[in-house]
Design a protein around this nucleic acid. Structure first.
Lengths: 356, 356
DNA sequence: TTGTATGCGTTATCAG
DNA sequence: CTGATAACGCATACAA
């Protein structure tokens, strides 16, 4: 057996060292500039003869331009920076999916930065991404830096916000239409005979989507001339205790109150839905009977918990795609005023909000 | 009011144009080379005086080196390419999270490429990532290209595989210890009195983790001298029908069989767990009573479906971190033989596998 | 239509 | 210890 020399993949003669534009130029017997022209303007500026020579040289060398070098030269990179508040959050991930797809289809790649809900790191994320010459940002963050009490700097690059609005927002904004989604939820509950409503949310703490939903909820209640009661409960991460209290209070109203007022809960997102379902189970409350439940965000498990949980699904994939498209439009030069794109949710009725 | 000139952020005198190494050199009254030395070797090669001058120039100009330019020069980018079979899969996402964290901590950023379970696009993903000079790949893919019937080319860059093993694997491999996890599952069921076992999985179709689990299942059954029966069922994406048949057959054994043989199902992942739970509900089967159920992958909803579903949790975050660490070790030059890192799962018993 | 020369922001190789 | 200077791979103004 002959001593095995340099490893080579079967179908590739040249060593792995990537071909550069200079190699192509040499192979085709032209200058680097000519090759560059072919790359950027096709055969518009070249004679047919030379164009084809360059073309076949590129093919035979399997040449691919280096985005890095291009980026350095042009100041643009084909990269889009995505900053996510928390990759553990299914919502973020669902959006991420749409974003990645749309970007790739448009020839961009996504660099991901997760800040694990640490607001202080938003600026760090943007800076890191920016140094990689990303051409724009998609932000699913609060946009608020407590310690600095100012907005993060976007380095003059376009950005689009998803789900979370920023103060004095100059950017495009893509989100669920929270007001009408909440209206759907309340209407649905009232129609099903529920009269004592509780909105349960994670702490509002400057997260615009939570605030919008809470506000919409109050408006819905206030707007009803009929006898619907409503209250909100902010539930901290670890405070199952408080949540249990709130449920107890909701279900077993004080003395002197008729029991004709059926109680129901609206949860602000899937996380809270799960928590409420857990507490309800612990208290022995039957969903759809002792307690109505409708939650923002649809999840695969929603049909399977108890009698099935009624949800308002967000068009997450579409939200992500929209965000990406907005950003790319701006990147490619259209200079539009800030837009707000509000997509509507879809209600799926299940056992947890049964008619009386 | 004076005509407002160029917009400037309050605390930043210079225009937004990012400072370069040349700016710093000028500001400090030294050469670019000197600044570069300071950047790369600290003050080891510089006189204290000059070092401090450079240092303050950097600070006052808020200078940050351009990774792009560095990358061009050094041939390394600080980027790691992550190719995910399907971002819609909670498992992928959970791993992604660990990967992102570990990479960032080590000073790398992650570029994400999702191939939506399209095996043909694995090579495309790797090529795209490679052109961005990523320093290595983390792959959660099949590594198998049906149409080409060969393995994707990694361009000589290090790669680590997560969850899915490739043929003739030369790469590091990080995964759940499927064999012992399956053993745990079977032991648990047998101990709880179940005797008629069915393993339900998505189609094996060359996905190594599915194959390993199925094989492990068969081995477990074969290894038992006692009277435990076992069978496997591959369930296609859209075939609820077949799944229902399988459940029916499992629960209602043919004539002449004693009913002392309690039936139970082991699901290969969370997706299948949900599907089985749905079908069981439709058939009116009580989990933990008429039918045992234990599933791979723990999810937040597991405790809430029916009497709670027993699961085997994968240490997803740790898997991601491990993968990242392995890759980074290789990137930074340690030339080790291929390793396999198998992490064990954790069983959480819930109502769906109650004792008789 | 094509080639030459220059520069993008860094790092490395030389001298000094 | 420090400073010119030449690459890295590419795109473009300018010259031919």
């Amino acid at each position: 057996m002959p001593p095995k020399s340099i490893q080579r993949t079967p179908e590739q003669k040249a060593p792995a060292a990537k071909a550069t534009i200079a190699d192509v130029a040499r192979e085709a017997g032209v200058s680097k500039a000519t090759v560059s022209r072919f790359l950027n303007h096709g055969d518009k500026l070249l004679s047919a003869d030379i164009a084809s020579r360059v073309e076949s040289a590129i093919a035979s060398l399997r040449y691919t331009p280096s985005p890095m070098a291009q980026s350095l030269k042009r100041g643009k990179s084909g990269l889009i920076g995505l900053v996510v508040a928390d990759v553990a959050n299914p919502y973020s991930v669902a959006v991420l999916r749409g974003v990645e797809t749309a970007c790739r289809e448009a020839g961009y790649l996504v660099i991901l930065f997760n800040i694990s809900n640490d607001r202080e790191r938003e600026q760090e994320a943007i800076a890191a991404l920016s140094s990689y010459q990303v051409e724009g940002f998609i932000l699913n963050t609060s946009g608020y830096m407590p310690s600095k009490s100012r907005k993060p700097d976007h380095y003059g690059k376009p950005a689009v916000l998803v789900d979370r609005r920023h103060a004095d927002m100059q950017e495009d904004f893509v989100s669920l239409d929270n007001a009408s989604a909440m209206a759907m939820a309340v209407d649905h509950l009232v129609e099903a005979g529920y009269r004592e409503l509780l909105f349960v949310t994670q702490p509002l703490s400057n997260v615009s989507s939570r605030i919008e939903r809470e506000t919409a909820f109050r408006n819905c209640i206030a707007g009803r001339t009929s006898k619907v009661n409503g209250a909100s409960h902010e539930n901290a991460e670890d405070d199952a205790e408080a949540l249990e209290q709130a449920l107890r209070r909701l279900v077993k109203p004080g003395p002197g109150t008729r029991r004709s007022r059926r109680p129901a809960i609206i949860t602000g997102n899937a996380v809270m839905t799960l928590r409420v379902a857990a507490v309800a189970a612990r208290l022995g409350l039957q969903l759809g009977k002792d307690l109505g439940l409708i939650g923002f965000d649809d999840a695969e498990w929603a049909p399977l918990i108890g009698p099935g949980i009624t949800t308002i699904a967000q068009p997450t994939d579409e939200l992500g795609r929209m965000a990406a498209r907005c950003l790319i439009e701006r990147i490619e030069g259209f200079n539009l005023p800030p837009r707000q794109i509000l997509l509507s949710g879809r209600l799926t009725a299940r056992g947890s909000t049964m008619q009386e």
